[in-house]
Design a protein around this nucleic acid. Sequence first.
DNA 1: TCTGGGGTCCTAGGACCC
DNA 2: TCTGGGGTCCTAGGACCC
Length: 433
Amino acid sequence: MYALVDGNNFYVSCERVFRPSLQGRPVVVLSNNDGCAIARSNEAKALGIKMGAPWFQIRHMEDSEGLVALSANFTLYGDMSDRVMSLAAGLGPTQEIYSIDESFIGLAGVRGDLVDRGRRIRARILAWTGVPCGVGIGSTKTLAKLANHIAKMAERKPGAYPPELAQVCNLSALPAADLDSVLSATEVGEVWGVGRRIGAALQEAGVRTVLDLVHSDPATIRRRWGVVLERTVRELQGMPCVGLDDAPAPKKEIACTRSFGRPITDLPPLIEAVSEFAGRAAEKLRKQDGHAGQVLVFAHTSPHRPGPRFHRSVIVPLRRPTADTPALVRAAVAGLHQIYQPGYDLIKAGVMLLDLTPASRVQQELALEDDSADPTRARLMVAMDALNGRYGKGTVHAASTGMHDNRREWGMRQERRTPNYTTAWDEVPVARA
DNA sequence: TCTGGGGTCCTAGGACCC
DNA sequence: TCTGGGGTCCTAGGACCC
């Protein structure tokens, strides 16, 4: 048995904790560069604002509907996430943190009324963090996910589902007939693992509701759509095919990519940006105690705008796997020189670290031909990470990243960012009596 | 004017091997 | 008309997730 706990409209809920005046209003949180909506309050959803809607297309609702837009504040959301996760863990013996706002809880051995238990944990999370959550319970992860969706819809759209399923929904406790009517009231596209493409194709084939999918033959599904969907069908039928992953494997690739605040054409600011991306990625790499064997760098023009297109990438192999920031930055910049061509309005670039191996697996070499394998360099990197952790990102960085002021040229737009209420002393809110 | 960022898994096809 | 059989590894691309 599994539960899925996830924050309602998570980013918006985090912002509302510190700005209660946003309750009841249509609110969206915008992606980096204030590009598009990546979280929407229920009121914003009711206005018809879609996930990923470009800000410039919905901006008019600021005046007409009182829509509030905020720039994403991932530092705040990450910290709030830690708090919510540690409380959600109280639901059962094991936990898989699936995303910033979702975790699966393994309920094996948990006794008593699961819905009751879910309601108590939900109330505690709300009281202690201010974030409202939904709890879905089912005999497989896919069913728990579906139950979570139903818990939310039952709360948001009264009448869509039986009201007692709101907020906390246990599908495995439902009588068969009730379960069927709930499943037939839900479209296939809502199922975890059925995306836009397959959802549309299933509809086309006459599989419209979740109940239709449950009644389909797994072997046929496999032949036509592949094993992934077959597993989904079996999970919906109650056969567990996906286990709880409470010790996530180290990443196989690590990326740092950004859209720029405005287009870049010249090489120097591009070198700064790519250097910073490589440095950030290197930090993540060291956090998982890994080495990279290859560095990929890419840059491209906007796919949405007219004009000459540019879209290139190159993989730079490293002579020896490393987590050394200067070595990775050098490789990224060398790659950038290979692909760069003047005369294009580039709006995005990025660095990916590939061919990752555990740092413990070091290839011995006779001669140290560069300093990236020098053991004192590893200690330098530890010191660098510690400084940046203590005094803030970018306190110490590779020289080619340039000084912070230059970022005006390529840094992202964030016109509506809220303070780091919980992670920066000078931004902690002050309560007045 | 203005459209995010970071991942995973699966499959098909080609290269290569004995 | 005929073209061996079986296997591994790699890569690119598609689909999905939040």
